[in-house]
Design a protein around this nucleic acid. Structure first.
Lengths: 246, 246
DNA sequence: TCACCTCATTGGTATAGACCAGATGTGTGG
DNA sequence: CCACACATCTGGTCTATACCAATGAGGTGA
């Protein structure tokens, strides 16, 4: 589709500095191995101050051209991953189909009382315990999403004994003979703070996309809920009713 | 659902200044009639510089608590409008159901050659002319979205004679006896620049959500495509497969 | 009455320099 | 070989000041 490019007829660039960086980036004069030089060096190169430079970099960051890792530096963004939250294909397969390389890291898998909002979503009384699984995923090496799953403990009594770095979708099907049914989700543009920011190694307040999803099985039973925090420039949501619910 | 609140267990605030402003906002000590005092005044009040203050305000802006209008000032954000891009209910009705007040302003309605990307989406040769309708919409008085429609000129030969500040959905049904069929759309977090920024009166580079949608009728004929540019803090996307395609 | 102009107000951008804090790599000592 | 401490590199935050540019209110003149 339109691929999120902002070089439309109706969108225009802004400052000269920003434009200069944009050109240098496009022609590959700036980044070495997808990494930009330090801010101090860039400020010197463009004969400006760090503050002004950082303004420009922030704009390019919001535009999705570059991103930063907290106190580590600036990097060039790759193309967005196309994501359909209605499809329940596992992450590995989804990325493979787009010729990308995915990996998943398990952060924790524990039993915990879910926050009120989560209990409500899962239609359980406030204070109910769920399995809480926190993971983060990379695409082509880059950290792109932090996910927090809350699973029904009754349905998945022994899930902690499984390999949780793989696809939960596959586990559901293979170990518990569950197929997905209805899905509901919510997408909110938010700023990443706290654990999502830490885990994604982005500085506090970086822009992101929160996707809250509630999954049911064929009979309508609520299986789990996952809250995803995406780096904003790493994803493009795409849905087509002709595809069916997948 | 989770309503986009970032006061989860896993998200935390950041700097002291930011926190102070957050508290003052929450307790209504800051805004008069939803408008914040000038930056210079705020900087004095919190004993800091404008630069530092603006950093903090930007964070709160990304968090969706406040927003700015270009060179006009800072304002307190209202709650998000819940939006399901699969539903074809008209804007007026959608907002009314959420006890909000909507209005639409027509910017232009002309015949124009569509950009390549749009022609591709509409499955027409490059260089095809379409009706191009540009509008902007408000919710409770606030500018929240800029929309650019591209309509098939053959299907809607006399659409310029209609009232274009109302619902196109209703026009399609009432004047052209067309009902919506399949829909496909794409959501991209982007920065607002150029015309969308100007029309929404936000400063260049403000964060936004771009939604590109292609609409078909019952027989699969492509009717139109609309590109929406939302202010990021004004909308929450929500989809539930149990609702059906609406 | 209305179009136009002027000017005060407001945010937007810029300079210059300093220090803080997390991330990393290096080297030392066990 | 490994664990730990330290130096250094990086971005993150902050002070202080200045000027630019769009907005909007008020006044002026046709």
């Amino acid at each position: 589709m339109a691929d999120g490019s902002t070089n439309d007829t109706i969108t225009q660039p802004s400052s000269k500095l920003e434009q200069a960086i944009r050109v240098d980036l496009a022609e590959g004069r700036l980044a070495v191995d997808r990494r930009l030089p330090p801010e101090r060096e860039l400020a010197e190169r463009y004969v400006t101050t760090r503050i002004t430079l950082r303004e420009a970099l922030s704009h390019l960051e919001m535009d999705g051209l570059i991103y930063r890792e907290n106190r580590r530096g600036w990097f060039v963004s790759d193309r967005r991953l196309v994501y359909n939250p209605l499809w329940r294909t596992d992450f590995q397969r989804m990325t493979r189909e787009q010729n990308r390389q995915a990996s998943t890291e398990l952060i924790e898998a524990v039993s915990a009382i879910a926050p009120e909002a989560i209990c409500a979503l899962l239609e359980q009384p406030v204070g109910t315990e769920f399995w809480r699984i926190r993971r983060r995923r990379r695409v082509d090496g880059r950290l792109v999403v932090f996910v927090e799953h809350h699973l029904n403990k009754t349905v998945f009594s022994d899930i902690l004994e499984q390999d949780l770095t793989g696809s939960l979708t596959n586990l559901y099907r293979e170990k518990y003979a569950l197929e997905y049914g209805d899905v509901s989700f919510e997408i909110n543009p938010i700023s990443l703070t706290g654990m999502p920011a830490t885990e994604l190694r982005c500085s506090d307040g970086t822009f992101g996309l929160q996707i809250v999803r509630v999954n049911r099985d064929q009979s309508g039973l609520i299986l789990d809920c996952d809250v995803e925090y995406w780096r904003h420039d790493a994803v493009s949501i795409r849905i087509d009713t002709r595809d069916g619910p997948g």
